[in-house]
């Protein structure tokens, strides 16, 4: 509706996610190597900070990010806290499975991030 005012709030912008991109993404993930994982960490940081994608800064303080929110805990020492990357994948995919009352959005289940994008974000988290 044209009546609806639009602000440039961090959460306003819709994420677009065509199905074929998902298929591509899964293919790419299958072939990932260590070298790719390194560049994936940089890509993961971009995704985590991007307002229309991860937008993690809305709730978490993260090294290198500006104007963080305070709804979630600071993301720090993640590598030592979660040595098993599958745990991080699970948190980002659908945190409501561990904590039904969490305010953290289910990025995987609601297709905000593709599996490959989640993987890149996890690579980034493991550098923290």
């Amino acid at each position: 509706m044209t009546e609806t005012p639009v602000t440039d709030h961090p959460l306003t912008r819709p994420a677009r996610l065509p199905a074929f991109a998902l298929a591509l993404a899964i293919g790419a993930f299958a072939g990932a190597s260590t070298a790719q994982a390194q560049s994936a960490a940089a890509e993961g940081q971009k995704l985590a900070f991007d307002r229309s994608k991860g937008n993690c800064l809305t709730c978490h303080a993260i090294k290198g990010g500006n104007l963080p929110g305070s709804i979630g805990p600071e993301l720090i020492d993640i590598k030592s806290k979660y040595p098993n990357r599958e745990d991080l994948v699970a948190i980002i995919t659908d945190e409501t499975l561990r904590n039904p009352l969490t305010v953290m959005p289910p990025f995987g289940r609601n297709r905000i991030l593709t599996p490959r994008e989640i993987d890149a974000v996890v690579d980034f988290l493991q550098t923290l």
């Binding site: 961090p10 959460l11 809305t58 709730c59 104007l67 963080p68 929110g69 305070s70 709804i71 305010v103």
Partner: peptide, 15 residues
């Protein structure tokens, strides 16, 4: 309620 019951007083970005 996620924002106004569970998180009042918290910052969502700068708000």
């Amino acid at each position: 309620a996620t924002c106004h019951v569970q998180s009042p007083g918290e910052r969502i970005r700068a708000e």
